[in-house]
């Protein structure tokens, strides 16, 4: 279905002026609103876009000028809040961190961008999925500092090297790009998934933490780290550049050799 013509003229009013240097793109979006639809469908929109536009700008263009019912989450718009994870041309990305020029690079002839919700979580509406199972897995790994005994009056001492040991996994923004790119997670929803393991890693390898054993026990479970098949999809998908697969391997090794 091509929604552009019918929706854009009519009551939605005129569209804003097209900026110099804009090209016309086709944005193909997976739509589904269980309130009215029996089945998901594809809608296509013709949109003027600058090479420096973020994909989020294109989605806003549709929502604000063509079809106000298009539904997605977004907030910070520069890759730090983790709201707008989606499948863009078949790969998990944040819509606010992918520029049009990066998607059209290469042949230069391809002018269609495909957008789908992330996979493995139930779709609530269009690109907006149920995040509860994802956060439930996160909460299950005890993602907080666990310590015993009296608290020091000042800060706990931690060497620069000890701080560096878990630096990579502190960058996680819980966007779910990694977890929902994992083929194991797609088929086994009970698997904790990469993000939960990343957040367990962040504490297991923190020299101040005394809860490693509890967390490793949890991750030794049938739905824990051993489900990982080292596909590396998660590492490729992470918008924060975290070495996700490496972190999972480090947790596996800690389980095998009983030390961190």
């Amino acid at each position: 279905m091509t929604a552009t013509a019918e929706v854009s003229t009519g009551s939605r009013g005129a569209q804003p002026p097209v900026p110099d240097g804009a090209i016309t793109l086709t944005l193909k979006v997976r739509r589904f609103n269980p309130e009215v639809d029996d089945e998901p469908r594809w809608d296509s929109f013709e949109i003027p876009a600058l090479p420096t536009d973020r994909v989020l700008n294109l989605l806003h263009y549709v929502k604000w000028y063509l079809d106000g019912t298009l539904t997605f989450r977004r907030s910070c718009a520069h890759g730090i809040c983790g709201s707008d994870a989606m499948r863009i041309n078949g790969v998990n990305r944040l819509a606010c961190k992918v520029l049009v020029k990066d998607l059209l690079a290469g042949g230069g002839k391809q002018t269609t961008i495909t957008i789908e919700p992330i996979k493995g979580l139930p779709v609530h509406k269009d690109l907006l999925v149920d995040m509860e199972p994802f956060f439930e897995a996160f909460r299950a790994v005890k993602p907080y500092l666990i310590t015993y005994g009296n608290e020091p009056t000042r800060e706990r001492v931690q060497s620069v090297a000890d701080r560096e040991r878990f630096d990579d996994t502190t960058k996680c923004i819980l966007c779910a790009c990694c977890t929902t790119s994992c083929p194991v997670y797609w088929t086994e929803g009970s698997y904790f998934g990469p993000a939960a393991i990343v957040n367990a890693h962040r504490f297991i390898f923190d020299s101040r933490d005394e809860g490693a054993e509890e967390r490793l026990d949890i991750l030794n479970d049938i739905d824990g780290v051993w489900r990982c098949r080292t596909t590396f999809n998660c590492t490729d998908a992470c918008p924060r550049g975290i070495q996700v697969t490496k972190a999972i391997q480090e947790v596996k090794r800690a389980l095998l050799f009983k030390r961190v």
Partner: peptide, 18 residues
């Protein structure tokens, strides 16, 4: 700041670990 550190916040550290 000290409360946040005790809650687990990973501050950057000095060579002495502060």
């Amino acid at each position: 700041v000290l409360d946040l550190e005790k809650m687990g916040l990973p501050f950057n550290r000095t060579p002495e670990g502060k």
